[in-house]
Nucleic acid binder design. Structure first.
Length: 201
DNA sequence: GGAAGGATGCACT
DNA sequence: GTGCATCCTTCCA
């Protein structure tokens, strides 16, 4: 698959900037023999060491969080509430636990399959409007943990065709991390303005 | 071996 | 807008 261009976009020391540049790119999967694809419309940045909301904060290193210390472009898939799979992109160099959570997609391909997996009655923009739902719609689960998003052909990221206007990017506080004390007020959640597929807008 | 938790989703008011 | 079901994994003893 792939190239240095994408690697440069997805890896680096500034996880917040990467969270912004991920907006407008496509997340693709080829699972169960079906290609599904959607434009990333919502992300959140998690900065390892100094961020209380991050699983790997204060250098916490366990079997679960070790993937976040991998090199940029690695997928970190984590099971939440025993039910929902959440998809992250690890973004920093090996040894530093930064990651971007992908919270919502606007489906562009494989929509029949997504409907089958989620709910065949739902309108397109409600198939991936939430981190748990998007992984379900795309068939992602923990076997895709540690997958290389830059080189895999099973789960990968495609750069956006056209540039996203900065004015369309909205920054706001992150969701579902009330336990993170003051860090929950950081404006590290980003989404595309006026996009129906965003989980809360 | 077991207790605790959790980056949600949905039903319901 | 708010409340809560839910259940697998993780981590510690």
């Amino acid at each position: 698959m792939n190239n240095d261009y994408l690697k440069n976009l997805l890896t680096g020391p500034d996880v917040v900037k990467i969270a912004r540049s991920l907006l407008g790119m496509s997340l693709c999967s080829a699972i169960d023999g079906v290609h599904t694809e959607g434009i990333i419309v919502e992300t959140e940045a998690y900065c390892g060491t100094n961020d209380k909301a991050c699983h790997a904060h204060l250098g916490k290193f366990t079997n679960r969080t070790k993937v976040m210390y991998e090199k940029g472009g690695t997928a970190y898939v984590y099971l939440c509430y025993g039910i929902h799979h959440l998809v992250n992109v690890v973004t920093n160099e090996k040894g530093i636990a930064d990651a971007v959570l992908i919270r919502a997609l606007m489906p562009t391909d494989g929509i029949d399959m997504m409907r089958k997996r989620v709910d065949k009655e739902k309108p397109i923009h409600q198939l991936c409007n939430g981190p748990g739902k998007l992984s379900k719609a795309m068939g992602i689960n923990k076997v895709h943990n540690e997958m290389d998003l830059l080189h895999s052909s099973t789960l990968y990221i495609k750069p956006n065709v056209k540039e996203i206007n900065e004015e369309l990017i909205v920054g706001t506080t992150r969701i579902g991390i009330d336990y993170a004390e003051e860090d929950k007020y950081l404006n590290w959640r980003f989404y595309l303005k006026n996009n129906k597929a965003v989980s809360i807008y």
